[in-house]
Design a protein around this nucleic acid. Structure first.
Lengths: 231, 231
DNA sequence: CAATTGACTCGTACGGTGTACGATTGAATG
DNA sequence: CATTCAATCGTACACCGTACGAGTCAATTG
């Protein structure tokens, strides 16, 4: 009730069907379209971050008036939803290798997912507060199928799926957040000076300093997969 | 560079020290104070969510003028940072039981953390984009110590810490996001109708429907702890 | 052909936001 | 009393998302 959280598409009269026949500039550009808007939104998010996405700026990049966007989009929230789900499209594992290798498939999908979130850091911070789009659901389905093939019983499926899901989401969110907060060196240095006194174990293990994020991610994932497939 | 990401406190001239001697209302209220501001911000966040926190509304609740806040706070971002870290304070495990039970300590802390995030759902969605405050670092330290006691070598510590951390963060973020998006029933129903065709495995395991979140969380955590303590 | 429709674009305007700036208050200090 | 300084607050401004309605053109219809 607090959040508007519009899961399905709204019931605006606009843009029921049809595309591209009227209203192009004298130059001859393809005019506006939902695809172009979303693609540009992703560009802008990549370049400027979540708070850098303003409707006016988006319209500028598209060479259009601000209000023209609202024929296609409804509101700004919807732009976020669409950008998020667009970015999470999954092409599936490469066909090389044996077809039955469920573990390879799962790892590939999760690492692909993580790579996307690291390439588009805004997506990690946006995911928590948006409903799941088709592409995200598709990834869940893909993972469920693979685990089913791996012999995980339906009764244990929820634990398995959510454990993996949570792990990847958490890993990426953490990683993205650290990459950002380390950007300002001054604060980092200041943090270090306090570290030795108040957080001795953290400092000893150099937890925040030279974590091998990729390796750590893989190892933790292995632990999880071992435990889950063992039943 | 995209985000301002002010890790440490700023260098505003205001509020270096001192508190409470001047400027109270004729009534005799304790006037303004950083503690009161942050506490009220948490109240407001609990009641209205992230986008419900406006400086004017916060000032109203405090019976103060809007700009009075800015003597204490710097900007709105800082209010978020402070509210977040305040909420994550940890009192430590209950002293009952044997002192050496590392696993109980770790589980207690993680479940406490998760409970907090579920009680304050905004905190889960805010955590991804903010730097770690003192209380969050404290939790990392507590966990490191417990794992060290458990016999985890320093070399393996990063994997252990981050795996657990990621798991809890992901689990809570996911949980909070689902609680919100299921609030609008209409969209949920619509999603179900599509589910059977496009996502058969999801539907068969009733993944999104009757997940036992608490039980699932515990089981996944056990898998992880088993694997990690085994080395 | 002219008239109508409807997809699409966009300028203007409005209410709401965070906050810069300077005026104001009142206790503490000389 | 005069000065200082912590603290409060009203006004004003730039910027935001977007409601509203007018404008443009291709396709359709008579």
């Amino acid at each position: 009730m607090a959040a508007k959280g519009n899961g399905g598409q709204g019931k605006r009269p606009q843009r029921i069907e049809a595309a591209a026949q009227a209203g192009r500039k004298p130059g001859g550009e393809p005019s506006l379209s939902l695809e172009r808007i979303v693609a540009t939104a992703v560009e802008l998010l990549d370049a400027e971050g979540v708070e850098g996405l303003k409707m006016r700026r988006l319209a500028d990049r598209l060479g259009a008036g601000v209000m023209s966007l609202y024929w296609h989009v409804g509101n700004k929230e919807e732009v976020f939803d669409l950008a998020l789900d667009t970015v999470f499209a999954y092409r599936g594992p490469p066909p090389t290798g044996e077809p039955g290798d469920w573990r390879r498939d799962v790892v590939h999908m999760l690492e692909d997912w993580r790579a996307i979130m690291l390439r588009h850091p805004w997506s990690a911070s946006l995911l928590p507060r948006r409903a799941l789009g088709a592409n995200i659901l598709g990834r869940l389905e893909t993972m469920s199928e693979a685990l089913s093939r791996a012999g995980v019983a339906d009764a244990d499926m929820n634990v398995a799926i959510w454990s993996l899901w949570n792990y990847v989401l958490g890993a990426t969110v953490t990683r993205a957040s650290f990459a950002l907060s380390d950007a300002d060196q001054a604060a980092g240095q200041q943090r270090l000076s306090v570290l030795g006194e108040r957080y001795p174990t953290i400092e000893r293990t150099r937890l925040l300093l030279d974590s091998d994020w990729d390796g750590t991610f893989r190892k933790g994932l292995d632990v999880l997969l071992d435990g889950l497939s063992r039943g």
